[in-house]
Every structure is written in C-alpha cells, then in structure tokens.
C-alpha cells in the first residue's frame, strides 16, 4: 500500500513537521515552510492541523517547551534555555512555559533538582519492589 491516497500530501506535511523538529531553535518562518512544501499558507496550516491537531505555530511552541524542559532538567539556566530553544524574549518564554507546564521555568527546575537529589540518595525507592527484588537491587 505504498501508494495510499494523497501520499504526496502526507510526505510534504511530514517533511515540514520534521523540519520543525530539527530547526526549532532557529528563527522559523512558517511562510517559508509552506512555500517549500508548495502549499499556500492557509492550505498548509489546515492540513497540518488535521494531521497533528495543532497548527504549525502551536506545534513549534510545543516542541520548544518540550526541549526547554529537557534543558532545565540538565541544569541549564532559565535564560540560557530560553535562547537555546529559539525564544527571543524571556518574558514570553516564561509565560508560555507556565501556560503549558503549569509552573514557571525556575519552579520546574527546582522541582527536578529535588527529584534528582532524592533519586541519588535512594535510587531503589524509585523502582517498583518486584523489579528491584528480581534484580537484587535492594539496599542493605
């Protein structure tokens, strides 16, 4: 079934999605992506939203916030994270982060640091007992 209906449309939309995944940290012009995919901006946005349930812009924001969470867990500073994921403004980054994650970037980082400390202190308490027993991981 390689030639399923509208295969050419699917491939172009998927390529656009992969472009966002790869270049989220750059200044991405969504008009450029729709031009590259040979769609009008309106048609491109409609097809993208049908497939991914998000507009390309919403998807880009989602990818950036996901990556930001990863960087904050890796102890990058909030301002460094903001610019590394492609935001120009710390205020808009913090606002979008809080709207999507439920807490501010600094609170999120503090929570993750606490969790890491707890894991380091007693790693086995984060593993279900049945698995820990099977592996012989119980702490003496």
């Amino acid at each position: 079934m390689e030639q399923y209906p509208k295969v050419y449309l699917y491939r172009r939309i998927v390529q656009a999605k992969l472009f966002i995944d790869k270049n989220y940290a750059e200044r991405i012009d969504l008009s450029y992506i729709s031009d590259e995919a040979c769609f009008s901006k309106f048609h491109f946005t409609r097809l993208f939203k049908t497939i991914y349930a998000k507009t390309p812009h919403q998807y880009l924001t989602w990818v950036r916030i996901e990556k930001a969470q990863q960087l904050l867990r890796e102890d990058k500073s909030v301002s460094e994270t903001c610019f590394l994921v492609g935001f120009d403004s710390l205020t808009s980054f913090s606002g979008l982060f809080k709207r999507n994650v439920g807490v501010s970037p600094s609170s999120y980082q503090a929570q993750m640091q606490q969790l890491k400390l707890a894991i380091k202190k007693s790693p086995v308490s984060f593993v279900p007992s049945c698995f820990a027993l099977q592996h012989g991981w119980f702490e003496k």
């Binding site: 509208k6 699917y10 491939r11 998927v14 390529q15 999605k17 497939i51 991914y52 349930a53």
Partner: peptide, 13 residues
C-alpha cells in the same frame, strides 16, 4: 496514532 499514513511516513523517514 492519530493518522497512520503520517506516522508511517515519519517513522520511515
């Protein structure tokens, strides 16, 4: 997945 054709194309890529 939401859309099997898009997911297939993405995973293949």
């Amino acid at each position: 997945c939401n859309d099997i054709f898009a997911t297939y194309e993405e995973l293949k890529a």
